[in-house]
Amino acid sequence: MSRILSSALFIVIVAALACVPFVADSYGVTLGIGMLGYVTLATAWALFSGPTRYVSLATVAFFGIGAYTVAVFSETIPYPLLLVTAGAIGLAVALVVGLSTLRLAGVYFVIFTFGLAELVRQLVTWYEVNVTGTLGRYIFLPVTPEGIYWQLLGLAAITFLISWWIGRSRIGLALKVIGDDEIVAAHCGIDIARVKLALFAISSVIITLVGAIQAPRWTYVEPTIAFNPTISFLTLIMALLGGAHRLTGPLLGAVPLFLLFEWLSANFPNHYSIILGLIFIAIVFILPRGVLAFAEENWRRWRKTEIKNLPAVAE
């Protein structure tokens, strides 16, 4: 009964959001694109990093790969195939990177993923300088903002379904064990490397697609634009705020934070960075386990029941 109810609710919400471009003006659509983009990024990020507690800063590496693929092939490949190509390249990179690095753990993994974004950016730059001899690339695709909005909405819905499905499947259970204790997981007969790799690949492909879908909005792409590290940090903080190991956690982090950023940059353009830094610090100190867990703990405390502290992602 409750499953039918929640799936009906899901369908209603997606359908309602799909109608937004018909009622909202173009700024509303722009806001929607930004919000859906970050919701998808944060959910995809939490898909892998939530249960495994591997904090990844490679978001922008894949995001940029998606954007760049569109820029490079926009004139030679028809649009739907373009997205497939971008996804395939993202998948290939994720597999190579995953195979070589998922044995790293803790802070080493964080450093590596941060370096990966920089590495990809430098490789693209090197290639463009020495092989093609141009740096910026132009994207002239007849994609309207509404088109981008609907594509992102579709991708966001698919990401949610994947996340929901994984949460209920054997692989999701395996991930939770890995996140709690890898040694125990290995002794239970879980193929740690394969599970982690699969999740990393799915998450990376989704992130790549977000970049590919959003790229036509920029018209012009160069490595510093496509591989802007802020995207990695914002995604991370949004997922952490919401709660990275809940289905709706990243959503509840991304939407309010995005609206807050938008409000801040419209009203306090000169103090934005300072306020942003303070918010980051506040999130880490006050809500290390995310809004959802915070609300739930207090709810239970109020009901005088036992509180079970979940370890935070960064712990």
């Binding site: 929640s6 309602a16 003006d25 700024y27 929607g32 709706t248 939407v255 309010p256 609206l259 959802l292």
Partner: peptide, 29 residues
């Protein structure tokens, strides 16, 4: 019972956020 309530809270929160977001987008005009 408890878990049912939790779900309901979660769902209400998700719904509220969505409605809020949609409202903001249209209302920003």
């Amino acid at each position: 019972m408890k878990s049912f309530q939790r779900r309901r809270v979660l769902r209400t929160m998700a719904l509220a956020t969505t409605v809020l977001a949609t409202g903001l987008m249209t209302g920003f005009a």
